[in-house]
Design a protein around this nucleic acid. Structure first.
Lengths: 198, 198
DNA sequence: GTCTATAACACGATAGAC
DNA sequence: GTCTATCGTGTTATAGAC
């Protein structure tokens, strides 16, 4: 008997995901404000009523996607942190994972980079106060203590290390770079590491 | 008699500027889509009719501001290009000017960095195809030919050089960095140049 | 849980007096 | 050139049948 409850819950979760996927696609393609709930209804193949049954409104869709994406990025960085040791290795694999995600899930990457929290979700904490940012900072702090990274302001070091790669991701998403970013990994890494290496 | 015509033209130009200033302020503060013409009317102290007399609509305000800002940045880079020689000197002063503009005209900088052409002005060329971007590329190409910069992909070099500083500008605009960026110029420059220096 | 129909509203844009 | 008043449209969100 619990089966029927479980099946219903599962199907409910499925429609939830369908709505979120449609929203993510449209938000990244034409932007939050250029997407109406009618668009999301059409894209998801469901109805307005159904959307409002699962979410309180359009804003919650954006919020949900935002936190989804953020925790995806976070777990990815955590994995790298746990799997490797030393700032050099860890930073390398953070950038590698950044490039891989750009290729395999460009919409997720686009959402992370271009989503304007302040505009769409006023009152949310800025992304730089988020967990991923904190992990990066501690990787760098440890690397500095170990003498791998030149002593300098931590914010400076993180900007120097990731600024270039992030810029490349943007150029790739905009279509300026046409080859997969993974092809440029070693060259990008060389530039990034030189900027902070001791 | 020409005086009266000139005076009228001047006053007309003045109200035009008042409207543009109000629009820039509101667009950067809360975003294009969160700003209504009523807001611009209130902020500028004029009327809806007056705004429509000077501009064809809201979108033209954004477009006008965009090209204004772009040509400001362009002339700034051109100045640096003409005033200095060698990739090293030129790049240093481009970054210096970037930081100075961030401090003296944060709204201009914010408009350049965060304005979403694709969303607000669909059909506009992306900023990376713009003149400022082209000048940077030629500075780098000349620097590579002169042996100042390691041989590498030009796009890669520009991302490495400016990615870090641009990231710092963003952090400054978001309030993560509280001191004027000019204080960090030498450290930021050190990181940026190391990433590409021969 | 899912649907359709519709309410309530704000927006960009226009018309026309002065 | 500047203004006020207003139109038409598209939006988010709700009500209520099934």
């Amino acid at each position: 008997m619990g089966d029927r409850v479980a099946a219903r819950a599962e199907s409910s979760e499925l429609t939830r995901q369908r709505i979120l996927e449609a929203a993510r696609h449209l938000f990244t393609e034409r932007g939050y404000f250029n997407t109406s709930l009618q668009d999301i209804r059409r894209e998801s193949g469901l109805s307005i009523g159904s959307i409002y049954h699962h979410f309180t409104g359009k804003e919650e869709l954006a919020r949900e996607l935002f936190y989804d994406t953020l925790s995806f990025v976070e777990s990815d960085i955590r994995r790298v942190y746990a799997q490797y040791s030393g700032a050099r290795e860890r930073c390398y694999h953070v950038i590698e994972s950044l490039f891989e995600t750009t290729e395999s899930m460009p919409e997720v990457m686009e959402y992370v980079l271009y989503f304007k929290h302040r505009e769409v979700l006023p009152g949310e904490k800025p992304i730089c106060a988020s967990q991923p940012f904190e992990i990066i900072k501690s990787i760098i702090a440890e690397g500095m203590a170990a003498g791998e990274i030149r002593p300098m302001d931590e914010v400076m070091a993180s900007a120097a290390l990731l600024g270039g790669p992030i810029r490349l991701v943007q150029l790739r998403l905009e279509g300026v770079i046409v080859e997969p970013l993974t092809q440029h990994l070693s060259e990008a890494w060389e530039c990034a590491w030189r900027s902070v290496a001791a």
